[in-house]
Design a protein around this nucleic acid. Structure first.
Length: 569
RNA sequence: UGGGGAGUCGCCAAGCGGUAAGGCAGCGGCCUUUGGAGCCGCCAUCCGGAGGUUCGAAUCCUCCCUCCCCAGCCA
């Protein structure tokens, strides 16, 4: 069993496909820029999720399509929340997704020195001041959405005093939170972000890169644009909530001697049905044990999808298919699943696995006889070849594939009915054995020995084809059936006083023991993906041991019968 | 009741003054040794609403409605 071969992604058609690419194309054509430089700027305070994947594919995708480059820059300006574990996982996930930042790995913390020097410039120019107001006071002075703010009593401090105070802040002379450096802009500005925003705060926390070198740290607004400027970013692409920050972004660029003037563009972040996307909530799920970790296969993190069996190709295809716009939207998670099936269908080798075994005894098949049946590995890909699977008198089939008293549209096995066993023979059910509780314990069937391989010389063809595994050769396995983590389309819609966690799906993980796999599945490598015929795509979990495989269900196959049943209810 | 955005099919999303792409979902059918895949149909006389400009508007103008973001020393 091997990992599926690479499938080619559809080539990007001619021109721009969204307003960002339109802008980039125009800027290149007009000569405004010679090369496009973008950046993906994660804060290392959590694992990357599918929403980040959209941003990653946009930034790296634009750079690649226009032969520019994309930097990976960690926005590490708040050491109280950031950790090395996250910077490592983020790099791993971006690489897994298939992107490469070349040598362009940066950290906002690389620029702390320059940022601080520029802060002194601002102070000298009378454009920033040290404010002694407490956090509460700053809030009170800021005013509200409808009322202008009032100037801080420290707003009028002279440049010399401000410079002295700023240096002493940096030197660690003042306690955390006691003072801030603020821009002197306009306390009556209708955009709250422009009401003398904080540039630096005093914060004694050990930074994952700079250690204890600093006790003042720049705020996002002060660090981000200047980092873009330092790196020569041409198009700084971020999500909609930063739109109101753009005037401030531009204010810094205009008022500082930066080497380059980048521009910010905003697009709508990704939302998915049945999914929570905020890092805060994902952290909550991890820290409070609602899931097994950041890479729990039910998590919308890239690590989770990877362990679940999603492919980078499918996620990339999804990212390009949902498009980029400025309208808030929530994409149906079924769309993501469809992108996955589309990818896996073409590359996943087929195998037979019986999840809920029902024993079948073939009455007219010789005791002790074993035949090696030929099975096609992938009907979508002739080059995938064939394999052998043992067939014998005692087999297992799926419990769901038998009904003693079948309803109208059920055309699988039932007493007196004939079905095909995939790649083997036609069998007819002749009897049902029950246990003391009245449960079906085993089936007695006869086999038509003229149908070896699955076709009959007389041309008849059963309505159903079932998967099967030979009892004496089966590999025992654990199979974990994953379903969506939330049962509500919008998990955030919770009753008064409760939060999104009331919408957790209690059946999001069903672990099945004693599943029967065909022998070719005895050894598997974590991450290997296969299709269990008629059931879905599954991938080998890292919990597997030799001879004791563990498989995760990645996604089910489309199931017409299940749909009919649902409709009937 | 300030400022900034957005409203095109159930969900995404093209459209950029010339008379509504595509995908997902859904619904029919064909085909099938996976009720998988594939294939073929159907699925917005209408673009948040109302006026106006124009030979002609989803695209331009006016007013209105709805939703989202901003009052962290978070990003």
């Amino acid at each position: 069993m091997e990992t599926p071969k690479e499938t080619r992604e559809r080539p990007t058609p001619g021109g721009p496909q969204d307003f960002i690419r339109e802008t980039v194309a125009r800027d290149l054509a007009s000569g405004r820029h010679r090369t496009v430089v973008t950046r993906f700027p994660p804060e290392p305070n959590g694992y990357l999720h599918i929403g980040h994947a959209k941003a990653i594919c946009l930034n790296f995708g634009v750079a690649k399509e226009f032969r520019g480059r994309c930097h990976l820059r960690f926005d590490d300006t708040n050491p109280s929340k950031e950790e090395q574990e996250y910077v490592d996982s983020i790099q791993e996930d971006i690489r897994w997704l298939g992107w490469d930042w070349g040598g362009h790995l940066y950290f906002a913390s690389d620029y702390f020195g320059q940022l601080y020097a520029w802060a002194e410039d601002l102070v000298r120019a009378g454009k920033a001041y040290v404010c002694d107001l407490s956090a509460d006071e700053v809030r009170a002075y800021r005013g509200t959405l409808t009322e202008p703010g009032r100037p801080s009593p420290y707003r009028g401090r002279g440049a010399d005093e401000n410079l002295d105070l700023l240096r002493r802040m940096k030197a660690g002379e003042f306690p955390d939170g006691s003072r801030t450096l603020r821009a002197r802009i306009d306390m009556a500005h209708p955009n709250l972000n422009m009401r003398d925003p904080v540039l630096y705060r005093i914060l004694r926390a050990t930074h994952h890169r700079t250690g204890d070198e600093w006790c003042i740290y720049p705020m996002y607004d002060y660090a981000h644009g200047q980092s873009d400027a330092i790196e020569g970013i041409t198009h700084s692409i971020c999500t909609l909530e930063f739109e109101a920050h753009r005037p401030l972004y531009e204010w810094f660029i205009e008022n500082l001697p930066v080497p380059h003037k980048p521009h910010q563009y905003e697009f709508a972040r990704l939302n998915l049905t049945y999914t929570v996307m905020s890092k805060r909530k994902l952290l909550d799920l991890v820290q409070n044990g609602y899931v097994s970790g950041w890479d729990d296969p039910r998590m919308p993190t890239l690590a989770g999808y990877r362990r679940r069996g999603y492919t980078p190709e499918a996620i990339r295809a999804f990212a390009t298919k949902v498009g980029v716009s400025k309208a808030n939207s929530t994409v149906d998670v079924a769309y993501l699943e469809e992108c996955l099936r589309d990818d896996l269908n073409k590359r996943a080798p087929r195998r037979m696995a019986v999840l809920r075994p029902l024993k079948v005894v073939l009455e007219n098949y010789p005791e002790g006889k074993v035949e090696e049946m030929d099975l096609v590995n992938n009907p979508e890909d002739a080059s995938a070849g064939t394999r052998k699977a043992p067939f014998s008198k005692v087999l297992y089939i799926e419990r769901d594939d038998f009904m003693e008293d079948p309803p109208k549209k059920f055309f699988r096995l039932s007493p007196g009915r004939e079905v095909r066993l995939r790649g083997a023979y036609f069998i007819t059910c002749t009897g049902v054995e029950k246990d003391a509780a009245g449960e079906v314990a085993a089936l007695r069937c006869t086999v038509d020995l003229h149908t070896r391989g699955g076709s009959s010389p007389d041309g008849r063809s059963p309505k159903a084809t079932l998967h099967w595994v030979s009892s004496g050769h089966a590999v025992e396995a654990e199979v974990r059936l994953y379903d969506r983590l939330f049962k509500a389309e919008n998990p955030d819609k919770a009753p008064e006083g409760q939060d999104y966690k009331v919408n957790l799906n209690p059946d999001s993980l069903v672990a099945l023991a004693g599943c029967k796999l065909e022998p070719s599945l005895a050894v598997c490598k974590a991450g290997d993906t296969v299709q269990f015929e008629r059931l879905g795509y599954f991938c080998c979990d890292r919990d597997s041991a030799p001879g004791r495989p563990v498989f995760n269900r990645t996604v089910t196959l489309k199931d017409t019968w299940a749909k009919i049943q649902r409709r009937g209810k």
